[in-house]
Computed example of a mutant assay.
Amino acid sequence: MLKEYSKLIQLLILLFVVVFISFVIKNYFNPFLYIVVLYLLAKPLQKFFLKVTNSFKLSAAFSIIVLNLLLFVVVFYLSNNIIVVFQKYVLINIDKLRSFYNDFLNLVTVSNNNPGGHIGNSIIDGSIIKKGALYTSESIVSYVIANICVYFVLVDEFMIRRLFYVLLPKNIVLNVGQSISKLKKLAVIEVMLALFSTVETFFGFIFFKVPEPFLLALICGALDILPYVGTIIVFIPLIIYNIVLKEYFIAIGLVILYILIQINREILETKFIGDRLDIHPILALLSIYIGVKLFGVIGIISGPLYVLLAKNIIISSTQEEFT
């Protein structure tokens, strides 16, 4: 009886483990995503510095320092140029934007039968500012902790692997290792898709004469990797901005451009992920979608990871039946 349902039992146990770990990481270990991203970015740098210094500690330290400097330069460049764009294109049309904002508030007030409503005051609430400050401070702490963790992971990577081989059965470690290597390919795919979307966005912005197309396309490319956030953060202000200036052709064009970019990305993502992870494209798409719905950004990793591990269990069980 147990032998007959052993495969199903293993899959259910695996599902419980993946769900439990994802839940714990999502709610109690915020630095996890920073650790994953920083490790993937720092590992190639460490390989380079290891050839120069021939020391794991020095190479890990240099790779993290250089990586943080590069990230700082990129963030500084983007933020500085965003301020320039804001001053150049928004402030000169501030009267039109204010008029549009007041008309919108009046429309909302009338529709809600609240003639004396103070909707403008409720939008900028003190609690929102407090939550934003709290979230920012938590993110900074998480980022610092992630840097420290990545340093020790880079230095003691071989010892950590050896520990897993001691604690867990060899076949499980190999199974997880193969799945993680495939997930690295998933990260590469996401970066490639973001670059492709950036190029599409750049040429679309040039066609519709959007100000600072290169800068805004870069921001869209960076946001494209993040679920829930995405390029909509850039497109909505641009669409509203052009509506305020009565550039309706550009506003409609930007809506169509956004839809086309999203459709192309979904098609390419489904195709590439299915091919690279060696699973059916629909299954790959569903695993990411369900994972993101359940666990947010963590689901991008845990969803496909469960599918890959489950596939290995099914294949290994099938091979045992034939031997």
Rank of each mutant, 00 (worst) to 15 (best):
N81V: 04
M159F: 14
I273N: 05
I263Q: 11
L193P: 02
G303P: 06
L216K: 04
I298G: 05
C149D: 00
F322G: 03
I261T: 09
V90F: 12
Y89W: 11
Y258K: 04
I225F: 10
Y241I: 07
Y77W: 09
L195D: 11
L97C: 00
K47P: 14
P211I: 03
K3G: 13
F272I: 08
L163G: 14
K88G: 12
Q46Y: 03
I64Q: 02
A194G: 00
S122E: 07
P227G: 01
L305I: 06
S302C: 01
I301Q: 01
V144T: 10
Y151A: 04
L91I: 13
L308Y: 07
S6R: 11
S316G: 05
A146Y: 06
K311S: 15
N112R: 02
I298L: 14
F202M: 01
E138S: 12
F207H: 10
D156H: 14
L50S: 14
N80F: 15
I290C: 03
N80L: 13
E138I: 06
N171R: 14
L257S: 00
Q46A: 07
V210H: 05
Y228N: 14
V173P: 02
K246L: 00
Y28R: 09
K170H: 06
V155C: 01
N114Q: 13
V176K: 06
R98L: 15
I13P: 04
K88Q: 15
M159V: 15
V155R: 04
L38I: 13
A187I: 11
T109M: 14
I279Y: 02
V155F: 07
F29R: 00
F49W: 07
F202H: 01
I298M: 13
V188T: 08
Y135F: 15
